[in-house]
């Protein structure tokens, strides 16, 4: 029997391991990306039914919808910030350092203009992240129907990264500070994958860049 990590694709092959997958302890994690055991699927087992699309009304924080339905208009400050951040990276890749710095400046200025969200807490964040399953499923269907391979790539990576973040937030809600005591939090600077462990992974499980692309999260001691 083979079990495959749905996050990074790591294969646990019973024939090559001393302990069968089914007998691994519940707190066992993927040796490649740190995903929990429940992220693994048995190879050849029927695919799980699509997750239901989350009802936006049920979410702790309602997402403002664009009344006009015009994708160009009605972007919020947070959206424009991400857009400019993306264009800054585009300029950097084209070796346009001045243009990149200007777009980064715009991104920073729009980030500062984002309206604070009332009652923002970790439960609200956990709910929103859970709701992303439905949003990713809908976007994947649209991209598949349109034969849009570029979007599918972005959605596959984004969903894996979101799944990991969602899991880590859940772990924090369950175990509190003990979960992160004496260990490090790393972020892949290329794709955003978050890894909790003493050292950064050799390769990013999602986008495959080397360890030096990971950034260690540090906060000033209070």
């Amino acid at each position: 029997m083979k079990a495959v990590c749905q996050l990074c694709g790591y294969v646990y092959d019973d024939e090559k391991e001393s302990v069968p997958f089914a007998e691994l302890p519940d707190d066992w994690t993927c040796p490649c990306c740190g995903a929990p055991k429940e992220f693994f699927e048995i190879e050849g087992s029927p695919e799980e039914a699509a997750e239901p699309v989350a009802d936006a009304q049920d979410e702790a924080i309602r997402i403002a919808t664009d009344a006009e339905g015009d994708v160009m208009a009605g972007l919020s400050a947070g959206q424009v910030a991400a857009l400019c951040g993306n264009l800054a990276r585009g300029c950097e890749k084209q070796n346009l350092p001045r243009e990149s710095a200007l777009f980064a400046q715009l991104a920073e200025s729009f980030t500062a203009q984002v309206e604070p969200i009332d009652g923002a807490d970790i439960h609200g964040l956990a709910d929103l992240l859970m709701g992303d399953a439905g949003r990713y499923a809908a976007a994947r269907n649209a991209a598949k129907a349109a034969g849009d391979r570029g979007s599918l790539r972005a959605l596959t990576w984004g969903e894996r990264i979101t799944n990991m973040l969602s899991y880590l937030v859940g772990r924090y809600l369950k175990d509190g500070e003990a979960f992160l005591k004496d260990t490090e939090v790393w972020v892949c600077a290329a794709c955003g994958f978050i890894y909790v462990g003493d050292e950064a992974p050799e390769l990013c499980p999602v986008c495959k860049v080397p360890a030096w692309k990971f950034e260690k999260m540090e906060v000033k001691a209070s």
């Binding site: 959206q79 857009l83 951040g85 984004g158 880590l168 939090v185 972020v187 794709c191 955003g192 906060v219």
Partner: peptide, 22 residues
């Protein structure tokens, strides 16, 4: 301290994913 680090990671991660969506 731990939550601050995790949320700092979340801000960075979510922005990168959002940029990719854009």
């Amino acid at each position: 301290e731990g939550l601050a680090r995790l949320m700092k990671a979340a801000v960075k991660s979510l922005r990168l994913v959002h940029e990719d969506v854009m």
